[in-house]
Every structure is written in C-alpha cells, then in structure tokens.
C-alpha cells in the first residue's frame, strides 16, 4: 500500500483561490473524513488528488511517483464523484452499465462481481441512463463505482447526499465491511457528521481552501470542551482561555473552548464540563463569529 503526498497544493480559478498551500500525507489503512463548509474546497482538493484538474502550484506523489499524467498511479486512485442529472452534463446520456464499464476499463483492481452485487443491492437498473436517475440513485451509482473500483486509495465526494437514513446506514455498513476486509484507504467528504463521526479515524478540515486540521478524530475531540453553568462561575472556570463560541440564556452561559475538559474540571468549580461531538467541533472551527 502506497502513500499519497501532497505538498503546497494551490489552485486558483481566475482570481479566486480554491486551495491555499495544502500539504498533507494520506497514510494507508485509514478512513479519513474530509470536512469543510460549502465552497471550502473539498471537491477541488479531491479532484486535485486524482489529477483531474491541473494545479496552479504544488506537487503530488503516490508511492513516490508523480500522479500527474501517470497512468499506473491513476489506475489505483478512484474518485467516486457526485453525479448530477442536470441537463447538459455529458455523462447523462450514458447508461448505468456503460458508466460502470468505464470503471472496468480504467481501474486496475476493478471487481466486476462486486459491482454487480452492489447494483443489485441498491436496485439500480443498468439499462437506465444517468439522466433518468433520482438523486438517491445517483449517489448509489457513485458509491458502486467507488467501492467496486477496489482502488487502494478511494475518495468519495458527498457519497450520502440525497440518500435517506436507511440508505446512509447501509452505505456506512458497506464501507466498513469493505474497509475491514481489504484495508483500503478511504477519504470521505460529508456534511452529515453526526452519523459519519464514528466511522472516521482521522479527520481533515478545510476552511477557505486551507487545511486547518489533520489529525486523529479522538485527538481532535479531546482538545475541545464545553463549559456551562452560571455566568460568573463559567467566566471564572474559563479564565485565561479564549472561548471559540459563547451562548447565553439569562444567567446561564455556555462556552466552547479549545482546552481539554480535564483542565477546566481540575479547577473544581460548579460548572458542567462536557466533551464535544465532531459536528460541534466542526461548527466551533468553521462556524465563525465569537460573541463579545
């Protein structure tokens, strides 16, 4: 299993900078969560990883070899991209089976039997064209492509968009089955963090094109806590730390801090100190404003 190394990736579209100096290493054997608000550059980053867009600057290697124009490296990287049945998309005229045929042609480790099994499990009609599929079906097709590619490094861009609760659970189950059986590396972007958090062992957080976090999920969560209680006691408990987010309700106050819960609890004041869930950490990191 090889490592993907990205160094100082920058991508500009005209005047707007979609990626700013992203440096990271994707180690084999992890499920990475790629988090970021809309427009933070998640899709651009995934496309950059798979050499689908030319970079403005920066280098990208897979197993030490450059990815750009490298047929062999590219056959081991798969991006299950978000499909859309919007008019004018060139793939819309393709039938499901023809779309999957591309997978057979392009991915070195493609597993046709697995692809068929997934198509059946999702109830996809292979004779339908992509333009005829519903939003949920489009996601299922992307998932099928990504999983059946058996690519050692697989990226999934918003795989659960448009899927209902049952299908989303089914997806994470399939993902974990495949991960435990094969040890492939996955990078998954999603906005529904409540469900996805337990699946990610590492998270990458993008904010305005910059990579602001790249660490183990547990380690990231352990850095944050919420302190709530009576205003003055909370202020005393948080003294010396800058809150990321503050909410007040009468005399009740809740501060989100980037401080381990134990540090605050050690002060022994009458406040509740609780750890944050991943979606709360995400809001704290990317949500923006601090109230005075």
């Amino acid at each position: 299993m090889k490592t993907l190394c990205a160094q100082n990736l920058c991508k500009s579209y005209g005047g707007t900078k979609a990626l700013r100096d992203v440096t990271l290493t994707l180690e084999p054997g992890h499920i990475y969560g790629l988090l970021g608000r809309n427009g933070a550059g998640k899709t651009t980053l995934l496309k950059a990883f798979t050499a689908q867009i030319p970079l403005t600057t920066g280098t990208l290697t897979y197993g030490g070899e450059p990815v750009w124009e490298n047929e062999k490296a590219l056959s081991e990287l798969c991006l299950g991209r978000e499909l859309s049945s919007r008019l004018g998309n060139s793939e819309n005229a393709l039938k499901v089976k023809d779309y999957l045929r591309a997978g057979r042609l392009f991915y070195a480790h493609w597993d046709e039997a697995y692809a068929r099994q997934l198509v059946q499990r999702f109830g996809l009609n292979p004779r339908k064209t992509i333009g005829q599929l519903s939003k949920g079906m489009l996601s299922m097709l992307s998932i099928t492509m990504a999983l059946a590619s058996r690519a050692p490094l697989t990226f999934l861009d918003e795989p659960v968009a448009g899927l209902d609760m049952v299908a989303r659970e089914e997806f994470y189950k399939l993902l974990l089955e495949e991960f435990t059986a094969s040890g492939r590396t996955f990078v998954v972007s999603t906005h529904i963090l409540e469900e996805a958090a337990p699946v990610f062992d590492r998270v990458l957080v993008l904010k305005e094109g910059q990579l602001i976090e790249d660490c183990e999920t547990d380690a990231l969560l352990a850095q944050f806590c919420a302190v709530s209680g009576r205003e003055d006691v909370v202020d005393a408990a948080c003294a010396g730390y800058t809150p990321l987010h503050v909410e007040t309700m009468g005399r009740q106050k809740c501060c989100t801090l980037r401080t381990p819960a134990a540090d605050i609890a050690a002060r022994g004041l009458d406040v509740d100190v609780t750890p944050l869930a991943l979606h709360q950490v995400f809001v704290a990191l990317c949500g923006g404003e601090v109230e005075p």
Binding site: E169, K173, L176, E177, T180, P198, V199, T217, D218
Partner: peptide, 15 residues
C-alpha cells in the same frame, strides 16, 4: 473481534 464490532456498531475498527 475488532472487525465484527466495527461492522455491527458502524464504527471505525481502530476505535
């Protein structure tokens, strides 16, 4: 096993 727990609870095997 780790993998059985991961699959049935929908959590990462590392966890």
């Amino acid at each position: 096993s780790t993998n059985e727990l991961a699959r049935s609870l929908h959590i990462n095997p590392a966890t």
